[in-house]
Design a protein around this nucleic acid. Structure first.
Lengths: 251, 251
DNA sequence: CCTTGACCTTGACGCTGCGTCAACTTCTAC
DNA sequence: GTAGAAGTTGACGCAGCGTCAAGGTCAAGG
């Protein structure tokens, strides 16, 4: 007893094209092929098809499906791998959704569509050579180790933190508040504290903190890539001024 | 002031290939092209690039990105649409994950890879009394005989088929496609055909098919146990509407 | 002047899982 | 005998680039 391709397709709730596809990739062969080339499937192939479709509904890719069907042994293991993948994807979507939400809020608050992710610039492998040239290979290695040690979540948090700081700077600059205003000075304090949390500069040697901060502040203006993070040259100059004022007062 | 393609790519954390791609699809043109064909980008294009990348990270497709960037007006609306999409995807993944989990459990309980107990609702002995009350003892006996005659494999197939139908219904309802849409109408056709394959109702008497389908459709909504199969009252209502439309047109 | 080597170009295939023609051949029914 | 349904094998399409391939351009050094 066997059935034509259309019958099988209808019965199984799929299409003949799909069945042919499974045939060409060797996932499900017809049990019989007529002299005319017509495909026919028997009960056994129907059962296999059911399993294939089941696994497909669970979200497995065709290669994964094939693997599960061949290696009868560790089906559960394969499914667990898949499950982990699903959870990861869900996580990713959740993060995206949150990001979209906050972007919408920003837009509705009259904000512009900003480039928060200038901070993939903090995918710091990008700056490898430069860092090594300026501060040595060890500094880079340490930094790299630290970064990896954060884990994906930690990195996300870090990026988020940086993004918010940059965002606030841009907002402050745009608000017209002077670099000496409380707003800006509070930001400066946050900024300095943030700097301290970057490894390689933990607890500056006595008396060097001020010079360090002043130097960095100037670099923000001099280096376009940093300046861009603060909304261009004007923004960077604003940050520099605020940091200078803060350093003079507090450091 | 402008930069070469590599510089821009590094700075923005993307690749030159991507920039070229954006060029060919007209999403981001270089600000200048050298006599040698080299691409150069200025600040303005950099800003645009940042926005593009931001939107991409939020998960929008390139056409959607283009649209958002052109229609300055309803950016928020576009993002909200996207957000809805994200949530839907998340929902789908969550369902898949649950299904995978239960499948794993089954496997570890020594079970086979089958599309079994999603459809325990169709373990029809459950409905024995009700069927007998509504349609008589003979109807139930016939049905039971038919069911046993299917054999284990046949029952598996049957359950799988039902499962896919239900799943497709839920997906269609969630997709937002109207009950009159092609998608839903195709499903309705499948549903009616499926009904025909249930014994006890083979080849409806002349002219009763329409009434039969309409009656069933209404029952799906009225009876919670059926409604549950379609994702609750809303899902059942969707199925009912689709079946009504189909019955009016085709039966 | 010539050679590296880095960087640029266009062109085109690859990947996922089928949907969707296109161009033909076969089977079924009247 | 002929129409119409159903079957066949190609082959393109889609999303978003990654990844060669083959070759031009340019700055630096021998």
């Amino acid at each position: 007893m066997d059935w034509s391709i259309q019958e099988v397709a209808k019965f199984a709730g799929t299409t003949s094209r799909t069945l042919r596809h499974y045939g060409t990739i060797g996932l499900l062969e017809p049990s019989r092929v007529g002299h005319n080339g017509y495909r026919y499937y028997d009960e056994e192939s129907l059962v296999r098809l059911q399993r294939i479709l089941l696994l497909r509904e669970l979200g497995l890719g065709l290669p994964a499906v094939a693997e599960v069907l061949e290696n009868q042994r560790d089906q559960a293991a394969a499914l667990r791998t898949h499950l982990a993948w699903l959870r990861q994807e869900q996580e990713r979507l959740a993060r995206q959704a949150r990001a979209v939400e906050s972007t919408i809020q920003q837009l509705e608050g009259g904000g512009q569509l900003m480039a928060q992710d200038m901070f993939d610039g903090f995918d710091h492998t990008q700056y490898k050579e430069e860092v090594e040239a300026r501060w040595g290979a060890k500094a880079y290695a340490d930094s790299d180790k630290w970064w990896r040690g954060l884990g994906t979540e930690g990195q996300q948090e870090w990026k988020g933190r940086v993004a918010r700081l940059m965002d606030d700077w841009r907002a402050a600059a745009a608000s017209g508040a002077s670099p000496e205003s409380d707003t800006a000075q509070t930001l400066a304090a946050r900024h300095v504290e943030w700097l301290g949390s970057i490894p390689g500069t933990p607890g500056y040697p006595e008396g060097t903190a001020k010079a360090y901060v002043l130097g960095l502040a100037d670099m923000y203006v001099a280096d376009e890539r940093f300046a861009a993070n603060y909304g261009g040259a004007d923004g960077a100059a604003y940050v520099r001024d605020a940091l200078h004022a803060y350093a003079e007062r507090e450091l």
